[in-house]
Simulated scan of single mutants.
Amino acid sequence: MMRLLRHLQSDRTGASAVEFALVAPVLLMAMMGLFDLGYNVYTATLLEGAIQKTARDSTIEGSVSKTSTLDAAVTEMVRNIAPQATLNFKRTAYSSFSDVGKPEDFTDVNGDGVCNAGEPFEDANANGSWDADQGKAGSGGARDAVLYEVQVTYPRPFPVTSMFGMDADYIMTSRTVLRNQPYDLSEKVVKVLNCP
């Protein structure tokens, strides 16, 4: 009996299979995580390239009538790698690069930091009210700086991320700002109005 126990103790047959069974799940999860990361990075790079090209094409005179065609080209490029992706497009025009994302200027007469009580403000986007973002929806006019944003949502290709509490869908947003070409010499008139 002792001889049999000594023989079993020194026998290494099958040890590799047991070690592989212990290591394989961790290795497979790590590999799927890396594949998911690589897929998302590749899709983001593809999106950035498509957006840069489309944004440049959007700055040319007459591109306003072609926005759906330009957006369709971005959609096609992204769907080549993420077939189930949904894309949302947004264009916001500003009079200069420094105005992107900034509120409309106002004179804070009562010093409370809020545009109210009839305080005067510059209606940069001509909508008749003070806004925290002075951009105007759309492609704007000549020499406007246009913020072009695309949000892409697609299901993750590798389900391992759900085991770590991540969403089943991956969402990324890409932005670029370019100035429209000077295809006309129209001047913009900014009205001064009063806050409510």
Rank of each mutant, 00 (worst) to 15 (best):
R6T: 10
H7N: 10
L8G: 02
Q9N: 08
T13G: 15
S16Y: 06
S16H: 04
V18H: 10
V18Q: 11
L22K: 07
L22Q: 03
V23Y: 11
V23T: 11
A24M: 15
A24H: 07
P25S: 11
P25I: 09
P25A: 10
V26T: 09
L28H: 12
A30M: 14
A30C: 11
M31Q: 05
M32P: 05
G33T: 12
D36E: 13
N40R: 14
V41W: 09
Y42R: 15
L47V: 01
I51T: 14
K53S: 12
T54Q: 09
S58F: 01
S63K: 09
V64S: 14
V64W: 07
K66T: 13
S68H: 12
T69P: 04
A73C: 01
V74L: 14
T75P: 02
M77R: 15
N80T: 11
P83C: 06
P83V: 04
A85F: 07
A85M: 07
K90Q: 15
K90M: 08
R91P: 00
R91Q: 09
A93F: 09
S95T: 15
S95G: 06
S96M: 06
F97H: 07
D99G: 03
V100L: 05
V100E: 03
P103T: 03
E104L: 01
E104V: 04
D105M: 02
D105E: 10
F106R: 10
F106K: 10
T107F: 14
D108W: 01
G111Q: 08
G111E: 07
G111Y: 03
G113H: 01
G113P: 00
V114D: 01
A117L: 10
A117Y: 08
P120V: 11
P120A: 12
E122N: 06
D123C: 00
D123G: 02
A124E: 05
A124K: 08
N125K: 06
A126Q: 15
S129F: 09
W130D: 05
D131I: 02
Q134H: 04
Q134L: 13
G138W: 03
G138S: 11
S139T: 15
S139L: 13
G140V: 08
G140D: 06
G140Y: 08
R143P: 07
R143W: 08
A145M: 00
V146A: 03
L147P: 00
Y148I: 05
Y148E: 00
Y148D: 02
Q151C: 08
P155G: 04
P155A: 04
P157N: 06
S162I: 14
S162A: 15
F164M: 13
G165K: 04
M166F: 12
D169E: 11
D169Q: 14
Y170P: 04
I171P: 03
M172A: 14
M172N: 12
M172L: 13
T173Q: 11
T176H: 00
V177T: 14
Y183G: 14
Y183E: 09
S186F: 06
S186G: 10
S186V: 06
E187D: 15
K188P: 03
K188I: 10
V189K: 12
V190A: 05
V190E: 06
V190T: 15
